[in-house]
């Protein structure tokens, strides 16, 4: 199977057409395109939204409008206000900024660790490979989140950097497995031999020749990792271990809303709908990218 489909990825002219091909396939997938557009809208909503709200309505995430605390949606406050009188729409936008920063940074951490681990194991092979993949297997079947919970609480840290690093550090295993598989199937191919004959060292072969040829799956799984990381952050925030007040992410907003949903349902509905739909869209886009970029697992 590998032998019949892979050459198209390797030779330079055909390699370009892989991306063109993938782009064409992706555009035909209406759900994936819709999801992509939705994510772009969400990015604008979170990044630009707070400025617009400040310019047009004079709203921000921290000003307390005590006279209008805990009120339902209105023309002035589209998502309502929280019990302290803060505008929920702007809080949701600001929470989105933080949630997206966490998601992208932690995914980047997972990406670097996973790609390095997987490509080393796959390229070196033999006993090293076996030992490295054994570690992945063990971590895979283990509730690593539990360790993060314990670490976050005993360290008593409010540092976001630690949060990014920890969430990233527990999510790299799938990426390592995928990259290893790809590298193993590629490492004996002629273009690798050619590079070696030209005097390229192992580091250069992996970084310049093997990893670029596994970019497709890497992009796909990075996209699918984003929603997963967002959910992990939300999970930690619900337990009071993630993003700390006065900062708020979607996770903390939704967790707060879930507590007060019986009395003030809009505290939950706004952030929860925005967060769940973004996660939903990211999953859809990831699936679409997989169908487009990774014809082997495509749902033909």
């Amino acid at each position: 199977m590998v032998a019949t489909t892979a050459p198209a990825r390797v030779e330079a002219p055909a390699g370009r057409s892989l991306w063109a091909d993938a782009w064409r396939r992706l555009r035909r997938n209406r759900m994936a395109v819709g999801a992509g557009v939705y994510i772009a809208v969400m990015l604008v909503f979170c990044v630009v939204g707070p400025w617009i709200a400040a310019a047009v309505g004079g709203l921000d995430a921290t000003t307390q409008d005590i006279d209008h605390g805990a009120q339902g949606p209105s023309w002035r406050h589209w998502f309502g206000t929280d019990p302290l009188g803060r505008d929920m729409l702007v809080r949701t936008m600001m929470g989105g900024r933080l949630a997206l920063i966490v998601a992208f940074t932690a995914t980047a951490v997972a990406l670097v660790v996973g790609v390095t681990w997987g490509s080393t194991a796959g390229f070196v092979g033999g006993r090293t490979d076996e030992a490295m993949m054994r570690v992945v297997d063990v971590l895979y079947g283990f509730p690593v989140v539990v360790f993060v919970i314990v670490l976050m609480s005993v360290l008593q840290t409010k540092s976001l950097v630690v949060l990014f690093a920890l969430i990233g550090a527990i999510n790299w295993m799938t990426m390592a497995r995928i990259v290893r598989g790809q590298v193993m199937s590629l490492r004996h191919r002629e273009f690798v031999e050619a590079a070696r004959a030209l005097g390229a060292g192992p580091g250069r072969i992996v970084a310049r020749h093997l990893i670029p040829n596994t970019l497709g799956p890497i992009i796909v799984y990075a996209t699918l990792q984003l929603p997963h990381v967002m959910l992990t952050e939300a999970f930690l925030s619900f337990l009071g271990l993630g993003v700390q007040a006065p900062e708020a992410s979607w996770g903390t907003l939704v967790a707060e809303g879930a507590e007060k949903m019986v009395v003030y349902p809009w505290l939950l509905i706004g952030p929860a709908v925005v967060m769940a739909s973004t996660i939903f869209a990211l999953n859809f886009l990831g699936d679409g990218l997989r169908d487009a970029l990774d014809p082997q697992t495509r749902k033909d």
Binding site: L231, F235, F238, A255, M275, A276
Partner: peptide, 8 residues
């Protein structure tokens, strides 16, 4: 099922 957090 995958996208909705359990605390929601």
């Amino acid at each position: 099922g995958i996208s909705v957090p359990s605390f929601v």
